[in-house]
Amino acid sequence: MAESPNRPAHPLDAPEAAAGGSACGSLGHTPAASICAVPSRCVRCDEPLTTPLVCGSCRTVFPAANEYDHFARFGLPRTMEIDERDLERRYLMLSRGLHPDQFAVRGTEDKLLAEQLSAHVNDAFSVLKDRFRRAEYLLELEGGPQRAQEKRTPAGFLAEMLEVNEQIEEARGALDDSARKQMASLRAEITKRRDAFLAEVAQAFASLPAQGDLRRPGVLLKIRERLNACAYLEGLSVQIREMLVS
């Protein structure tokens, strides 16, 4: 591969540069050529860059991109506020750029790297497109408590879950039309609860105190508690759905 090992330091080598640059404020922008904090031109061919991982014209793949987090892979800042259509556009562009066909005549090294990046991009897309998984991932990046260590939920929530479980058990025992109707509306309610928790989570992330701020652990815990609650709600929603199709 023609890559010079001592090529000058490049912004693309620093994941942080792409992850959180202040120029990323507005996400509404559509032209992919202006993906935030990514240099506008390829180091190799000097053509305008359309994705942070691969050059659209000379197909140079950037090895440093292996170290990027899921947000940086799409040239997005770390935030809950993602425009899902914009994310999908970026995903399609990356998929095209990294497609094996594009590397048919290239060296094995480039081909392998493109394959690797492509797998990362697929992972990243499946995580970021789902609000719940996006929040879990963001919490991990921010160094918040993980579910295995911190099982708490908002006050009173578990008692409520006990009641909902009882309702579901009762309905399962005698699943007539009125029970079905009741379960369908319970499921809608559960979805609404989950959305409300996720909205609170997004708000908490948006005003997350900086590293070192004494209030930060409290906010991260609050996020954890709400995501734990979402996990319960998701499980119940699945239970009801399965019961209703049977």
């Binding site: 579910r147 099982k151 578990l158 879950m161 006990l162 499980g235």
Partner: peptide, 13 residues
């Protein structure tokens, strides 16, 4: 006592 395991959705009273 009401406790739970969010990873599997278990609730125990």
């Amino acid at each position: 006592g009401i406790v739970g395991a969010p990873e599997c959705g278990d609730v125990m009273k």
